[in-house]
Write a protein that binds this DNA or RNA. Structure first.
Length: 480
DNA sequence: ATGTGC
């Protein structure tokens, strides 16, 4: 374990720098203002990541908070190495934004939310669509493009909402077109077995489906290009690769921990060299989990669309974008060709790096949720974010642990009064329909447990990395 | 993040 302790120096109102010293291999920057709460433990975790031999560039965005081994809200650029804990357990956890043709007041959003909650299982351990081995293999190998294949193979209500004409447009609006390089052969059996029935489920923790409306358009031209205007109802989905990704992560964290290059290093700081079989296998299995997550979010979107169709007749529910915030990718940057690990960080490519896509003129869309009860943002990348390895934050970030918010242990035992009172929680959710899969733990996700999204987004914009398109506010929230 | 154990 690194012995030196991190020393942060503020270099300007938006940047704190941790100079390279002691066992650090790279310096580290935290992009945060004075108003942003920084947990000392998260800063220490960032420091530990900067001590890894393959570390080339290490940074954190303002939503940094404590994670397993590596903090959430950080970017780790490694040379010739890939690191399971720097991706996290929920491989390709990400955001999807859908736009509806409706405006606030047009439709009963509480009713549609209740309907969605009947069709999409919320919470841990939930199952929905059981895939046979061949289907599952197609999903993990091909990602979102496998979806028409599933439609023909299995008989399920999701396919009532499938529209083959729209599907090509949808694929073009998913990061990597919904497909990462993958090899099902590298996926541990436990992932295939325990994940086989979890396509079309939300999961727990911070995952959600929200019915929101565009409260404010912040750039008319960009909003118009992306098909959004003031008052419009949108649906935001936050979910990942469920048990499938968890098992992939767990397996390869153990593989990494036993490699000679990690001798004496904690499991949660272990990496794999990309010129080894184990490194290539993790990369291929991570891709498989990423594909699983793309399909999961797409199937949930189909289920949501089916609810709209049922309630309002045929409803175009267009995909604005689907973007991941837990992934490692090999990218070329000023610091060279790096495995860019975004753990709770969103890629923010500008127009130039989106040249071959329909976003070549505006840059890559970025979907940044606040907490339930507060606003979410749609932004686009400017291409001026080389200092963050083309990355921005993934959300608001926590200010307190789940147990601190609740005052309870995971088993439900009261261990302290909890930092979020029932009264506070109620007030922060006023006027918002809340459907919680796990009512006992819902306060873990209270708006008061999160940083101020407005400040976190302000920092991204001030740094010049992204432009705000719209601010969305929740009307109904579905939580695991 | 994850329906679970040294």
């Amino acid at each position: 374990m690194p012995q030196t302790s991190p020393k942060l120096v503020r270099i300007d109102p938006l940047r704190l720098h941790m100079e390279r010293r002691g066992q650090m291999v790279a310096g580290a920057t935290i992009f945060a203002s004075k108003a942003v709460n920084l947990e000392p433990e998260a800063v220490r975790q960032l420091h530990d990541a900067a001590c890894l031999p393959p570390a080339k560039k290490v940074l954190a965005t303002a939503d940094i908070h404590v994670g397993f081994g590596v903090p959430i809200g950080c970017v780790v650029g490694l040379e010739n190495a890939i690191m399971p804990p720097a991706v996290g357990y929920d491989i390709n956890c990400g955001m999807r934004l859908l736009r509806t043709p409706f405006y606030k007041g047009d439709i009963d959003t509480d009713k549609i939310a209740l309907d969605i909650a009947r069709d999409i299982p919320l919470g841990e351990g939930m199952h929905n669509i059981r895939l046979d081995d061949k289907c599952l293999e197609a999903v993990v190998h091909q990602g979102a493009p496998s979806i028409p294949l599933l439609a023909r193979r299995i008989d399920h209500r999701a396919w009532e909402a499938f529209d083959s004409d729209e599907f090509a447009d949808d694929l073009a609006r998913i990061e990597e077109n919904g497909c990462m390089p993958a090899d099902p052969g590298a996926v541990p059996k436990a992932a295939m077995q325990k994940g086989s029935a979890q396509i079309g489920t939300l999961g727990g923790g911070n995952h959600f489906i929200e019915i929101q409306y565009v409260r404010e358009v912040l750039d008319e031209e960009l909003a118009k290009t992306l098909g959004l205007s003031t008052g419009q109802i949108v649906v935001m989905i936050h979910s990942g690769s469920r048990r499938f990704g968890y098992e992939v992560a767990d397996h390869y964290m153990n593989v990494a921990a036993h490699r000679p290059e990690n001798s004496g290093r904690p499991k949660m700081l272990s990496y794999l060299l990309t010129d080894t079989g184990a490194g290539r296998d993790y990369s291929a299995a991570m891709g498989a989990a990423a594909n699983f997550a793309f399909v999961n979010r797409h199937v949930m979107a189909l289920l949501v669309r089916r609810c709209f169709n049922r309630m309002f007749g045929p409803t175009p529910l267009k995909l604005v974008y689907d973007v991941t915030h837990n992934m490692a990718k090999l990218e070329s940057h000023e610091d060279g060709r790096l495995w860019v690990h975004r753990k709770g960080a969103t890629r923010a490519f500008g127009p130039a790096r989106m040249a071959a896509t329909e976003f070549a003129r505006i840059g890559q869309p970025i979907i940044t949720p606040g907490s339930m009860g507060t606003a979410s943002f749609l932004m686009v990348g400017t291409g001026r974010s080389e200092e963050s390895l083309s990355s921005v934050n993934h959300g608001a970030g926590r200010v307190m642990s789940r147990t601190a918010a609740l005052g309870r242990s995971r088993r439900g035992r009261v261990v302290s009064p909890g930092l979020i009172t029932d009264e506070q929680f109620k007030r922060s959710m006023e006027g918002i329909k809340l459907i919680a899969g796990n009512k006992r733990r819902i306060k873990e996700e209270a708006p008061g447990a999160y940083k101020d999204i407005e400040e976190v987004v302000r920092i991204v914009v001030e740094c010049g990395w992204a432009t705000c398109v719209a601010r969305m506010a929740p009307l109904a929230v579905l939580k695991g």
